[in-house]
């Protein structure tokens, strides 16, 4: 399994001008109702910048997944607003939000969420098919993206025929194939062993991160904190601290 030496992903190598990718202001979110209400987020303010790998860390149930769901536009907040590349989700209809998400957001999931009956190339082609690109072109582009994540020889393999690490590579290729500006990853390494997880993080850092794209990773795996540019520590639905480097957090 080899990753191409020259980064083939269309990223601008210039990383000095970091723009705001996501700006969350006063986000609150509660689940349930009446006496059984659970406040998942309590007034979150957070900026995610392009060219940076931001990690959301914290104990289970602290609201990390709820926050990236809102950032990615797949969950509505109760109060506050989340602005993604200058566009507020609040001002969009459900259809606009769905289309914007399809164009601007890539997803990497803990359990990969690959469609088991599609081959690796077909799975990767899905975001392009959603954008109505014809199947032949989509699968060709998916094949190229898979080559770039080191799976050029497994294009026609079904997910069940791939290892966990390979499946996560397919998922990463799927998140990258349509060149989105925000990639959200939920516990991308927790289903993998240490070494595979490390390689996946290397791949994400190498392939996904670039000047005009932001990467947000939710994790509670301390072994991968070193890959972060910024770390937002959450607890009880709040951001308790934002560290500008993993070293700051260690200190």
């Amino acid at each position: 399994m080899t990753i191409q030496k020259d980064n083939p992903f269309p990223c601008d190598e210039e990383t000095s001008t970091k723009a705001v990718a996501v700006h969350c202001k006063g986000i609150t979110k509660a689940y349930g109702s009446g006496s059984e209400v659970v406040n998942a987020l309590n007034g979150i303010n957070l900026e995610v910048r392009t060219g940076e790998l931001t990690m959301l860390v914290g104990p289970s149930g602290c609201g990390k997944t709820t926050l990236i769901s809102i950032m990615a536009g797949i969950l509505d907040q109760d109060e506050g607003d989340c602005v993604l590349f200058g566009k507020s989700f609040k001002s969009m209809s459900d259809l606009e939000k769905t289309r914007y998400r399809g164009a601007q957001v890539g997803f990497v999931f803990q359990s990969f969420n690959l469609i088991p009956t599609l081959t690796a190339a077909e799975n990767v082609a899905v975001p392009l098919l959603i954008r109505k690109i014809d199947r032949k072109t989509a699968v060709e582009k998916a094949g190229e993206t898979l080559k770039n994540v080191g799976l050029g020889d497994r294009l026609n393999a079904l997910p069940a025929q791939l290892s966990g690490g390979q499946q996560q590579r397919v998922a990463i290729a799927r998140a990258l194939v349509h060149d989105p500006r925000l990639i959200v990853c939920d516990e991308p390494t927790s289903a993998l062993d240490h070494e595979t997880g490390f390689r996946i993080m290397e791949l994400l850092q190498y392939a996904a991160l670039c000047a005009d794209r932001a990467l947000v990773i939710v994790t509670h795996d301390p072994r991968i904190f070193d890959f972060a540019d910024r770390i937002a520590k959450m607890d009880d639905g709040r951001i308790v601290e934002v560290f500008d480097s993993p070293e700051d957090m260690k200190e």
Partner: peptide
């Protein structure tokens, strides 16, 4: 359902 959810998250409209 999870896969339909994934498609929905990735931008597939209800109509599709």
């Amino acid at each position: 359902l999870r896969h339909f959810g994934t498609l929905k998250a990735m931008g597939t409209t209800n109509k599709t």
